[in-house]
Structures are given as C-alpha cells and as structure tokens.
C-alpha cells in the first residue's frame, strides 16, 4: 500500500491538481482501494474449477438451493472474515498514520457503504459467470488471467479511471467493472457529486440485474452439458 502511495505522489510530481482531482483525493482513493480490495470475491474461478475437476460439483448442483446462492453465501462468509483480518486493521492503520481526504459527512459515508454492498454483488456475479466457464473447459488458467487483468484495470482498483484518455474512459464508464471499485471510492473521495449518487446507484442496480440474468441463462445452458468427472 505504501508503495502505491509513494508511486502516486511521484506521479503527481509536485502538482496539486491533476485531471481536476487533488493529490490528496487520489491518495485517499488508492489507499481506500487497498482497504476494500480484500472484500471482493476473486477466487471463484479456481474454487469452482476444483469442484468440477474432482467431480464433487455433483453435490453442489443437487442441493435444494441454487448453486449461485450456495457460492454467494460462502463468499460472504469469506469476505466477512477478511474484513476483520485485513480491511479493518489496514483502515485503522491508515487513519492513525496518514493524512487523508476522508469525508466527515455521514451522508457520504452511508452512500459509500450502500454503493460498496452493490459493488460486492457485481464483483460476485462477474466472478461467478467467469467461473462457470469451467464447466466447458477444464483448463481455466487463461480465463482466470483474463478476468483478473480485466477487473484490475477496468474496475479502477489500481488506477483511478479519471486519468484514462477520454475515449477509453467513455467505454470503461459504461462497463460493469468500474462499478466495483471506482463507484464507491469516487463517492467517498468526492469525485462523484452528491447529486449524482442516486444515478450511480441506478447504474449499479441495472448492471446487477443484467449480470444476474446473464448468469442464470449461462448456468442453465452449462449445467445441461455437464459431464461429471470420475465414476
């Protein structure tokens, strides 16, 4: 985290403001990104793949609950554990040692938290859809790498989206990935104006609906083709 912090200080090269955003906002964005990063699911692809390869997925899909729900609650459990072991200590460390541009308004904080919960759903659904490809192809290394690089760049986890070139930014802003990191963090650092918050929620909700329908369709088609490995 400190590496990223100093990297960004160096990138600003003494300037106070870049692309309409102050250095403090950017630093806060980057450090808080590290805080919320452990909360998002990103290991479903190898996990689901392991179940498929061992054949034990036959238990999962014959349960009286949908496979996506089963995975969802497993993921929530893991994220809660990581909240207490990673996010919270890191957040306390930041508050104690660094000068940040964290807001004091309760409104902003609650908007951030709501948006964060919505991003969790989006991150989960993207990960779930990607993991379903394991039903088609047994070797998932490529898919995993593709998914990780795409979310890392396009979600704005490491690079705030406002520094991208305008044309590229336009595309990225309509994709669902940016709703994972960029939306809640921009709300938090004030890059997204208070008036725009409801429409940001709307953006997240629409993508949740789209991704949810996609995942259901994908799941239904994939399960029909299922061949259980090993006896």
């Amino acid at each position: 985290m400190l590496v990223f912090r100093y990297l960004w200080i160096a990138l600003y090269a003494g300037r106070e403001v870049f692309a309409g955003v102050t250095i403090e906002q950017t630093i806060t964005y980057i450090t808080m990104s590290m805080v919320i990063n452990p909360l998002f699911p990103n290991s479903l692809i190898p996990e689901v793949n392991a179940r498929i390869r061992s054949g034990n997925v036959l238990f999962d899909i014959a349960r009286p609950m949908h496979y996506s729900n089963l995975l969802f609650f497993q993921t929530v459990g893991k994220s809660l554990a990581r909240f207490f072991t990673s996010s919270l200590p890191l957040f306390i460390f930041i508050c104690l040692t660094m000068k940040t541009a964290l807001p004091t308004s309760v409104l902003i904080w609650s908007a951030f938290l709501i948006s964060l919960i919505l991003s969790f759903f989006i991150a989960f659904l993207i990960d779930f859809i990607a993991s379903l490809s394991g039903f088609w192809i047994t070797e998932i290394g490529g898919i995993r790498f593709l998914k990780w690089s795409m979310t890392d760049v396009l979600s704005g986890a490491y690079i705030p989206l406002w520094i991208f070139p305008p044309a590229f930014k336009k595309v990225v802003l309509i994709l669902p990935f940016r709703a994972i990191h960029y939306t809640p963090l921009s709300i938090l650092v004030g890059k997204i104006d208070v008036h725009q918050i409801p429409s940001e929620f709307g953006f997240q909700l629409i993508w949740i609906a789209i991704l949810f329908s996609l995942s259901s369709l994908f799941y239904a088609s994939v399960v029909k083709k299922l061949a259980v490995q090993g006896g």
Partner: peptide, 18 residues
C-alpha cells in the same frame, strides 16, 4: 426439478464426501 427432488432423496457416494 432438481430442488424439489433434493428434498426427497439422500445420496451417498463411497468415493466422495459431501
């Protein structure tokens, strides 16, 4: 109807564990 079916059957696979 996988879900409804799940409520009425129990399955044990000797080589796997649920």
């Amino acid at each position: 109807n996988r879900k409804e079916n799940a409520y009425q059957v129990g399955v044990v696979y000797g080589q796997r564990s649920q």
